[in-house]
Nucleic acid binder design. Structure first.
Lengths: 346, 346
DNA sequence: TTGAAAGCGTTACCAT
DNA sequence: ATGGTAACGCTTTCAA
């Protein structure tokens, strides 16, 4: 039924170990022998048994990817990370086992202790993440996508969300805006201190405060009403708001619709900048200026870093620098705020 | 370094086999012995080595999930299937290895032949899918999410997309519409004959034709312009169109915005029904009536079916029946088509 | 109710 | 350049 090395060896007329060495390439084999073995392998359709190999080498060529299933995490954003990790893993000949951290880290611990995975990549890291101490106590390396409070705790790759937020703020400030609102992730995300959510907000708000400018912040709840409510909250805190920083992919379409309903044109009456993946920003009407979230790159780098560690190297921490791409959704503030408000209220 | 059964046995003062039997529960163990062994396991933090177990039992407790990476497949829809499969697999104590079928099925074949997975779930099945013969030739069972041309080829679970399309059509027909357009998936999806895309469209269009009603079809390309162009194409084919069937999640927000720009109110001037996951439909403004796509249920059922097969049972094919939920986005057609068109053209 | 020992299919050390 | 064989950690048959 199942083809083993012994079958290949017999057919090729060589010893078992020779077949193994042909497979691993760990010692020189004469061209003729290799060719004969290869033919036997092809003819028999032989593939080395994964379990047997794992037990000998202590390696499974499987990377575990720990994803949370928080209901407020946008599935498509999450999928970008997963696909990037998957693709990069495959480029190293590794496979990806998908793991949920809901219901505790027991499953992750089990799979690691049972040597089912060579290493781990974990995403959606919180500033004080209870999973981080668990991960660093494991016998296999783990790389975080995101930065925990103590950055020395585990190797990680991240995007400079604080600078991304600050960059959005400076962009609007440089355009002459003085009344700027920040629409962020859901309250839940802030409650659990999701790194990206808090750092982007703090980066933006501290930049705005430093410029002595009036500013307000509102989280955006999931659901169609969330963006509308959040916008309302910002406008009632400061009716003269002329610029919005939006870091919430779900919010953007609803926000733009709502602005339209209020008679506010983008960017004539309201400037909008965002932090989100490039294609999300360009697929909106109008396209939204902003900082590109390099989801795929982060996933890819996390795998690179894990592979370095597995090869015994000491990885360099990675913090990707943001860049802002203008797409025409932000301009100078309107001359007369009152005019704008009056029109909006009609 | 690594804790083995022998360590547990020694600590508990029993034999290796006793420890193993405590673990597998395959033979009666006295309460006292079991307790002692369990304590030793806990104290040592022992977990059975996955590779060693796999080599003995011929089972890895890993399910492979084959996903395509077609650029026109909505990532968030795909993620629903993946998460559902993941969650259901875990309820059986199984783990999920994520596999891409881009670049051929070699990887899938390798992992199966090397006994790395116990079985497979494959999604995004095309009517004539080159992956299906590969999957049915494997030594491990595979369950499809979707129906191939020859349904006997492999076990599968599916949603009755033809009936879903027909149901949308009948709903609009019953409301009195006679001029109905169908906005479908991307041309790519139709080119590769993605099961859901072609069956939903054919189900809807044949129902419309049977009712002797004028109808038109347009695929919707990805990108912000796609929905607008598709709508234009439908309206130029039949300017009197009063009802739209939309099976393209990406299209809905842009479509609604465009209808607004054209001065067409939903449902007063244009009725809209859709096939999509429930939360997508309810998170739109206005909420869109339509058939709920049971993505999570399909993923879950696929795993159930795979588990049945792995337990030696013969699975029953599953074809979920659609149901239409009214949400107010469809109503009777406007009295005078001309009036509507004139207003729209202003 | 428990123990001893024979494999499972591979890799890699020690030979030749 | 190639071959024999011990070992990896576990499950399970055979014995007691």
């Amino acid at each position: 039924m199942t083809v083993r090395v012994a079958d290949v060896a017999e057919r090729a007329g060589v010893s078992i170990s020779t077949v193994s060495y042909v497979l691993t390439g760990k010692r020189p084999i004469s061209a003729r022998t290799r060719e004969r073995v290869q033919r036997a392998i092809d003819e028999l359709g032989y593939r080395p048994n994964a379990g047997a190999r794992a037990i000998r080498t202590g390696t499974t060529d499987i990377i575990g990817m720990v994803i949370p299933v928080a209901p407020d995490v946008r599935a498509d954003i999450q999928m970008r990370f997963v696909l990037a990790v998957l693709q990069q893993a495959r480029s190293y000949g590794k496979n990806v086992l998908l793991l949920t951290s809901e219901g505790g880290m027991d499953e992750v611990r089990n799979l690691t202790t049972s040597a089912a995975v060579d290493g781990l990549v974990a995403m959606e890291i919180q500033v004080h993440d209870p999973r981080v101490p668990v991960l660093s106590a494991l016998s296999r390396p783990a790389v975080l996508i995101g930065t925990p409070a103590d950055p020395r705790e585990l190797p990680h790759v991240d995007f400079d969300f604080a600078e991304a937020g600050a960059m959005c703020a400076r962009y609007l400030l440089d355009l002459g805006h003085h009344d700027i609102g920040y629409l962020g992730q859901s309250q839940q995300a802030f409650d659990r201190e999701a790194g990206y959510a808090v750092r982007a907000r703090d980066g933006a708000l501290s930049q705005l405060s430093a410029a002595g400018c009036r500013n307000a912040f509102a989280p955006v709840e999931p659901g169609p009403a969330g963006p509308t409510q959040a916008l309302e909250s910002l406008l009632s805190a400061n009716p003269d708001t002329t610029g919005l920083i939006v870091y919430n992919e779900h919010a953007l379409p609803h926000l733009l619709r709502r602005l339209g309903e209020l008679g506010m044109r983008v960017p004539a009456d309201m400037s909008v900048v965002t932090i989100c993946p490039e294609d999300e920003a360009t697929s909106l009407v109008p396209p939204i200026s902003g900082v590109t979230l390099p989801a795929a790159e982060l996933g890819s780098l996390a795998v690179d870093q894990l592979m370095e560690i597995l090869h015994g190297e000491v990885p360099h921490p990675v913090l990707l620098r943001p860049a802002l791409t203008p797409r025409g959704s932000a301009g100078p503030p309107p001359r007369s705020p009152r005019t704008r408000r009056r029109r909006a209220e009609t």
